[in-house]
C-alpha cells in the first residue's frame, strides 16, 4: 500500500467508525446560501463564483490547500470582510432567505446572529465572566444581573467549560490554558445566541487533547446550531462534518469551489480527481 492509499484508508476508517450517519442526514433547508459569491481585495480576485448551501443544524467543513480562499469565504458569510479595506463582495449571501449584502442590512445585526471563532484563541483581557457577557452587553440585551449570570452560565455549559471555571468566573481569561481559552471563545460566541457558528481553523494552535474536546463539543452543538468550520486537517473534517466543501486555487490563484457534498461521499468516492489528490496529501 502506498502512503497515499494509507491516508485514504485511515480516513475511511474514521468515517465508518462514526456513530451518526455521516452524509445521510435528511435533506434540510439552508441556513446560509451563497450564489455566485466572489470576493476581491483591491481589485485582485480572491474567490470567484462560489455557490453553496450550508444546511441547518449540520456541520459543514470547508477544506482546501492554503491560499485557496477558505477564510475569505468564511469571512464573507458574516460580513467580516467589510472591515478589510479594499474588499469587494459580489454575488449573494442569503441568510434565512435574506440577502445580507443588501443595502439596508446592518452588518452589526448580522454578526450578532452569526458567531465566529478564530484560529488563535483571542479572549479579551478581562475576566472569564466579562468575556462571555461581552456580546450580551454590546448588543444591548436588557438583562437583570441574575439573567445575565444565567445566560453566561448557559453559554459556558454549552461550551463544556462550566465545570472547569465555575469557581473562578472572576479570574482573568489569560489564566486559562490554550484549549480552555478557545472554549471560552466558543462560549463567548454562543452567549449571544446566534443561529450559525463560523469557525476558522479553531484547533490549529491546540494540542491533540484540547482538539478532540473541541471536536466533540462541535458535534454536540450541531443540534442547536448551524456550524461551518474551515480546517486544513482532513481527518478533522472526516471526524466532525456532515458536509464538506473542497476549495482549490485555479491557475490564476483564484479560489474556486471544486466539489461539495456529504462528507462520506467526498472522502470515499470523490468525483473530482483534484479532491482525491488533495485528500490523500498529493497536493498541499
Amino acid at each position: 500500500m502506498t502512503a497515499e492509499e494509507e491516508v485514504l484508508e485511515r480516513i475511511k476508517v474514521i468515517i465508518s467508525e462514526r456513530k451518526d450517519e455521516v452524509g445521510e442526514v435528511v435533506e434540510k433547508d439552508a441556513a446560509i446560501l451563497t450564489e455566485d459569491l466572489s470576493v476581491s481585495y483591491h481589485g485582485r480576485v480572491a474567490i470567484e463564483d462560489i455557490s453553496i448551501k450550508f444546511r441547518r443544524n449540520a456541520i459543514t467543513a470547508i477544506i482546501g490547500p492554503s491560499g485557496c480562499g477558505k477564510s475569505t469565504l468564511l469571512r464573507s458569510l458574516n460580513r467580516m470582510n467589510d472591515l478589510i479595506p479594499g474588499a469587494l463582495v459580489s454575488g449573494k449571501v442569503l441568510f434565512n432567505g435574506i440577502d445580507i449584502y443588501s443595502r439596508d442590512v446592518d452588518p452589526v445585526y448580522i454578526r450578532s446572529r452569526i458567531g465566529m471563532v478564530f484560529q488563535r484563541p483571542n479572549p479579551f483581557p478581562m475576566s472569564i465572566f466579562d468575556n462571555v457577557a461581552f456580546g450580551l452587553r454590546v448588543n444591548g440585551f436588557k438583562l437583570t444581573k441574575d439573567e445575565l449570570r444565567k445566560r453566561v452560565q448557559e453559554a459556558l455549559v454549552k461550551a463544556a467549560l462550566w465545570d472547569e471555571v465555575k469557581d473562578r468566573l472572576d479570574a482573568h481569561a489569560y489564566s486559562l490554558s490554550g484549549g480552555q481559552q478557545q472554549r471560552l471563545c466558543i462560549a463567548r460566541a454562543l452567549a449571544v445566541e446566534p443561529e450559525v457558528l463560523l469557525l476558522d481553523e479553531p484547533t490549529v494552535s491546540l494540542d491533540p487533547i484540547s482538539t478532540s474536546k473541541i471536536e466533540r463539543l462541535l458535534v454536540a452543538l450541531k443540534h442547536d446550531y448551524t456550524i461551518i468550520i474551515v480546517t486544513h486537517n482532513m481527518q478533522q473534517a472526516a471526524r466532525v462534518s456532515d458536509y464538506t466543501a473542497v476549495m482549490m486555487p485555479d491557475e490564476n490563484l483564484i479560489g474556486r469551489l471544486i466539489e461539495f457534498g456529504p462528507t462520506k461521499e467526498i472522502f470515499t468516492s470523490p468525483k473530482d480527481s483534484r479532491t482525491e489528490a488533495y485528500i490523500s496529501g498529493r497536493v498541499s
Binding site: 452589526v108 454578526r111 450578532s112 483571542n122 461581552f134 448588543n139 471563545c185 463567548r188 460566541a189 449571544v192
Partner: peptide
C-alpha cells in the same frame, strides 16, 4: 492585537 478587535466585531459590536 488586531485579533481582539476582530473578535469584538464578530460578536456584533459597533
Amino acid at each position: 492585537p488586531y485579533d481582539l478587535r476582530l473578535a469584538a466585531y464578530s460578536l456584533g459590536s459597533r
